[in-house]
Design a protein around this nucleic acid. Structure first.
Length: 283
DNA sequence: TCGGTCAAACCGTTTA
DNA sequence: TAAACGGTTTGACCGA
């Protein structure tokens, strides 16, 4: 799956559907909850980072900056109101095995927000940002295998000082986003195919009109079997099967190389492409 | 496990 | 120049 899939992706999008590349993100609307609460909360602490990376924590009260380091997501992460408490409790409130996996090195940035929010009975999705190093390790691992077995998950979690659940979620998201990206690429390909085919169709329509006009003006061709009409590969003009008729201009009526045996019987390129069976030809 | 979604964190642009 | 704002990225969650 994942990256491997991208090499063997079936095009399943329909023509005419042209979602914008950022549809996914556009669907995500900013809510009032995302208003910069940092400025109004009583507890002003901000993001922290895992070991190896640190963020300055701004304090709205002007207490100055403090550097906090975290070694797990339990560290002082801002938390805001949210209805989704259940999972948070499972994870942050003592999740048996996974909790046991955690090291005792956890350093909690000195702050009071968690207690404060517990008093209010609200919790929130706590989010940390992985460090570049953690992301790089996860990426490398993802390149090797886009899914993890439990042992790999445990090892990665231990190595990165994350909870196995975090590693699992990261891989889930990574797979989803890889797939989304591939869908966008496929969509672009289909759009190009659509444009190509539209142009081809327009050109052929015009050609058909020309031929109809020609048919009216020169009835001679009416007596000639279609299979005897061939095209000169160099000038793309029609040639008559018996060699009697010269080029008539603009014609590409005969495309069957098997049956075309006239003066210009070699057809060098097919005129129609199937983007699904031969996507490289049209796109 | 996936798809959909939420929302924190971040980033670039605009504005007073 | 800082605040405000809109858009994007991504960690986390839920339901199927």
């Amino acid at each position: 799956m994942g990256l491997d899939d991208s090499c063997n992706t079936g095009l399943v999008l329909g023509l005419g559907l042209s979602p914008t590349p950022n549809n996914y993100n556009h669907a995500i609307k900013k809510t009032s909850a995302t208003v910069d609460h940092r400025l109004i909360r009583l507890d002003p602490s901000l993001t922290l980072s895992l070991s190896g990376e640190s963020y300055k924590t701004k304090t709205a009260a002007g207490a100055g900056d403090q550097i906090c380091r975290q070694t797990s997501s339990h560290s002082g992460i801002s938390s805001f109101s949210s209805g989704r408490v259940k999972r948070e409790r499972e994870i942050y409130g003592g999740d048996g095995e996974e909790e046991a996996e955690e090291t005792t090195e956890r350093v909690v940035c000195s702050r009071v927000s968690d207690d404060h929010e517990d008093e209010e009975g609200v919790s929130a999705r706590k989010k940390l940002r992985l460090t570049k190093q953690q992301s790089a390790v996860l990426e490398d691992s993802f390149k090797l295998h886009s899914t993890l077995n439990p042992k790999q998950k445990q090892n990665l979690a231990r190595q990165l000082n994350l909870r196995p659940r975090q590693v699992e979620v990261w891989f889930q998201n990574r797979r989803a986003r890889t797939k989304l990206k591939q869908t966008e690429v496929d969509c672009e390909i289909l759009k190009k195919c659509c444009e190509t085919l539209t142009d081809e169709n327009r050109r052929l329509q015009k050609e058909l009109q020309d031929l109809k006009a020609l048919k009216l003006s020169q009835p001679f061709y009416m007596h000639m079997p279609a299979a005897t009409l061939t095209m000169c590969p160099s000038c793309e003009r029609l040639g008559g099967g018996g060699g009697g008729a010269g080029g008539v201009g603009g014609g590409t009526a005969a495309v069957d190389g098997e049956t075309a045996k006239g003066a210009f019987s070699i057809v060098t390129k097919p005129r129609f492409y199937n983007p699904f069976t031969n996507p490289s030809a049209a796109c």
